[in-house]
């Protein structure tokens, strides 16, 4: 090319601007155009796991999109609670999120999101409680990076099933959470068996971290659980829970 350096420079700048504008348009277009679909996907994924934890769909079931949405719409209510365990208006900032499972307006269970340290990375999942506020109704893990075959067994149905029916309060009504025992629970004293699940052989540490994580997470929700438990004892659950039925907004 026989252009002067100045012309070359101007050409370069023009070209750069042109490319930038075109690319910007392209990306913006794709991003905005596809955004609703992406959001829907994320929501659906979370919904599926909440449904699994609450025991509405089986752990290895593969329900369709429509089914998930329908079930979630019908049975799950997303709420937020403040530190004292009162349901709050979502406009008042971020509280702890909580999912209520109602069957014909009657509270069946509630689902708490779990985020725990694992041996190699974070373990994310949900734990569901019966409406009595102390009995575990279900447990799921949807994201982890534990060793397959050892700690990785936490995502398996056999392990998760063990949680069902365990109590997070002891006989003296003190909060004890659920712990993953080292080895089988058969060796534990009778009093502890109700709060413990069988550990995974060879994955002592995953169990230990998950136990800690559950304890910390549940402690945060302790006030809610206490409230629900008291309400349950008064047989008023579902009736006096006059919280505004907050729908999922996003």
């Amino acid at each position: 090319m026989s252009e002067s350096p100045r012309a070359k420079r101007i050409h370069a700048v023009k070209f750069a601007l042109l490319v930038s504008v075109v690319c910007c348009l392209l990306i913006t277009g794709a991003s905005t155009g596809l955004s609703p679909l992406q959001q829907a996907n994320k929501r659906l994924d979370r919904q599926k796991n909440i449904l699994k934890a609450a025991g509405i769909i089986t752990p290895d079931g593969t329900p369709s999109r429509i089914q998930i949405q329908a079930l979630f719409q019908e049975k799950i209510e997303t709420v937020a609670v403040d530190d004292a365990g009162n349901f709050m208006d979502p406009s008042q900032g971020q509280g702890l999120s909580l999912y209520l499972y109602r069957e014909k307006k009657i509270l069946k269970a509630y689902v708490i999101p779990i985020e725990s340290r694992g041996l190699w990375g974070k373990i994310k999942g949900y734990i569901a409680f019966e409406r009595d506020g102390k009995t575990v109704a279900g447990f799921t893990v949807y994201s982890h990076s534990e060793t397959p075959g050892l700690g990785g067994e936490i995502e398996k149905a056999w392990f998760q099933k063990n949680f069902i029916g365990k109590k997070i309060y002891n006989a003296q009504n003190e909060f004890v959470s659920v712990s993953i025992a080292k080895g089988g629970i058969a060796a534990l004293p009778e009093t502890e068996q109700a709060h413990s699940v069988d550990g995974i052989s060879g994955a002592t540490l995953t169990g230990r971290y998950l136990t800690q994580g559950l304890k910390e997470n549940l402690k945060q929700y302790e006030s809610v659980s206490v409230k629900l438990r008291q309400a349950y004892q008064k047989k008023t659950v579902g009736n006096d829970m006059t919280t505004p039925p907050i729908k999922e907004t996003n």
Partner: peptide, 10 residues
């Protein structure tokens, strides 16, 4: 490869 055969208590 076979952590189950190589670790744990059993």
């Amino acid at each position: 490869s076979y952590p189950v055969s190589m670790s744990g208590n059993g």
